[in-house]
Design a protein around this nucleic acid. Structure first.
Length: 485
RNA sequence: GCCGGAGUAGCUCAGUCGGUUAGAGCAGGGGAAUCAUAAUCCCAAGGUCGGGGGUUCGAGUCCCUCCUCCGGCACCA
């Protein structure tokens, strides 16, 4: 079975921040999980580099758009290894191969009769040489940048016949309710359709920084059509000399933030139909990370969480754990450094890290680091045996937070088990040797099970602990999650 | 304004189809234990389920209304 997961491609104008890290980490956890269970897995991320804001920013820096994009794309690329994220390919929409394929697909959309020439009318700023959207203009129809009055102008544009897909989209949401998840995201998409869809412009005549429209060279494609197609084009050239399209298309799941729901749940399926391509199986819409005060993170409020500060203090595994543990994936959540510290100390250091420490210490002290020959305690056997399947079901359903909770129930269970069986008392009693063997084997086995399941979430930690548990003789290792880092 | 979502313990959240005494973690309180990173475990306490009204034998759950917050509102990405 193949599994193809994507993140949105990140717009190069922004600096990499927590939101980018969040989606990338979630996608990475899904990818690692599926890969481990044997699915033929492909994980795509990348950068979106066209459109007017990029051209503007480049100009402001005195750079060519491409040079500016190169600079910023590097920052996004560099973020990934720092947070333990390992995609199979990093696409840039300025890749020549991407552009060629965008033209190919959209030419097909054109040939299939879904495109027509129309008039785009809007508010135009002569100083910006650009149209402004209704939402950004100031009172009195003034430019948000120059504060001068805008003029009503028209431009000849190519339009995509989105309205023609209204019925098909309605049908899609009814017949395939999990196309958009969670349910509240689907409701939002359906409400949007119910309002009635209008055609959208597919090209821009006044802009140069984009993919040229092959049937009309004076135009470039509107950046969203270029950007969405990355999910398709990447498969064509991610591996030199190999086309992966047949192997991975259609995508299993697109992870997206809720601010881009409309593009992924309405425009995207319509465009794929228009091009005669298969639809992704699911668009999963996750929530927003908000500041610890429950408000949107912003520099002026000073309520943001800096991923780089977390990395520096606690490391990549702790950041990955924290984000998926403290915020139920799919909903919004509040995050902050205090909460990171609290999860780190209470759960990673005290509960899990200390469980590793005490288990290894007892095996070393009581059995010279040898794992005794004894059966796993039947009290815990079934609980441990069922964990892998339960976690798999959770992650398959794009609920990584749920999977983590299931793992943590076992971590707590194992600490409780230690207290119940009191191995230090058994060790003082000559007649209890068999019981002690069984307790130690059970703890060793339990740790192996939970640590294996933690693999997709905390790859480094998981690998280190599994190695320590396999060493002969076993040795005490330094604290995995030291306090007061 | 319109559309969608949220409001449950001091904090973060779960709560299925309307059904017994509304659950968990953290923080705070009390205790046990000494294998361990002073880490763990147990116990008790903690609630006007945002306000008001309605339906029902019965409402955190369904309906109406009001308040607060978040996102979107069509071509900024």
């Amino acid at each position: 079975m193949s599994f193809y997961v994507t993140t949105p491609i990140y717009y190069v104008n922004a600096q990499p921040h927590l939101g980018h890290a969040y989606t990338s980490i979630a996608a990475d956890v899904l990818a690692r999980h599926h890969r481990r269970r044997g699915d033929d897995t492909f994980f795509l991320t990348g950068t979106d580099e066209h459109g007017e804001p990029v051209a503007d920013a480049a100009r402001a820096q005195g750079l060519e758009p491409r040079a500016w994009a190169d600079l910023n794309a590097e920052k996004f690329k560099a973020l990934l290894p720092a947070i333990g994220v390992a995609p199979d390919f990093f696409i840039r929409t300025t890749d020549a191969e991407h552009k060629r394929r965008v033209q190919e697909v959209l030419q097909r959309v054109y040939d299939n009769g879904h495109v027509y020439k129309g008039l785009y009318e809007g508010w135009y700023c002569p100083r910006c040489a650009d149209f402004k959207t209704e939402s950004e203009i100031l009172d009195g129809n003034r430019c948000p940048i120059h504060e001068i009055e805008l003029t009503r102008e028209q431009e000849e544009n190519w339009f995509f016949r989105l309205s023609a897909f209204q019925g098909r989209l309605e049908q899609l949401f009814e017949s395939q309710p999990d196309f958009v998840a969670p349910a509240r995201a689907r409701h939002e998409a359906q409400a949007f359709i119910a309002q009635g869809l209008q055609d959208v412009s597919l090209s821009r005549a006044k802009l140069r920084w984009g993919v040229e429209v092959p049937w009309d060279e004076g135009h470039v494609f509107y950046v969203w059509f270029d950007a969405l197609l990355n999910y398709y084009t990447a498969l064509g050239y991610a591996r030199a000399g190999e086309d992966l399209t047949a192997r991975y298309w259609p995508p299993s799941v697109h992870l997206v933030g809720k601010e881009i729901l409309k593009f992924h749940t309405l425009y995207w399926p319509a465009m794929l139909w228009a091009a005669g391509l298969e639809l992704p199986r699911q668009v999963f819409v996750h929530g927003f990370l908000q500041g610890s005060d429950g408000r949107k993170m912003s520099k002026s409020l000073g309520n943001g969480l800096d991923p780089f500060a977390v990395l520096e203090r606690y490391g990549a595994d702790a950041l990955r754990f924290y984000l998926l543990r403290d915020v139920s994936f799919g909903g919004d959540g509040n995050v902050g450094m205090d909460a990171v510290a609290s999860r780190y100390e209470a759960e990673l250091a005290n509960e899990y890290g200390n469980l590793v420490s005490r288990t290894l210490a007892m095996l070393v002290r009581y059995r010279d680091g040898r794992i005794p020959e004894a059966p796993v305690d039947p009290v815990l056997e079934s609980e441990l045996a069922s964990l892998a399947a339960e976690v798999a079901a959770a992650i398959d359903g794009v609920d990584p937070s749920g999977g983590l909770e299931l793992i943590w129930q076992r971590v707590r269970r194992l600490n409780r088990y230690v207290e119940e069986r009191k191995p230090w008392e058994l060790a003082r009693d000559q007649d209890a040797s068999t019981s002690l063997d069984s307790v130690l084997v059970t703890l060793h086995r339990g740790l192996q099970v939970v640590t294996t399941e933690l693999g997709p979430y905390m790859p480094d930690t998981s690998a280190r602990v599994l190695q320590a548990l396999a060493a002969i003789p076993l040795e005490v290792i330094p604290p995995l999650f030291p306090k007061t880092p």
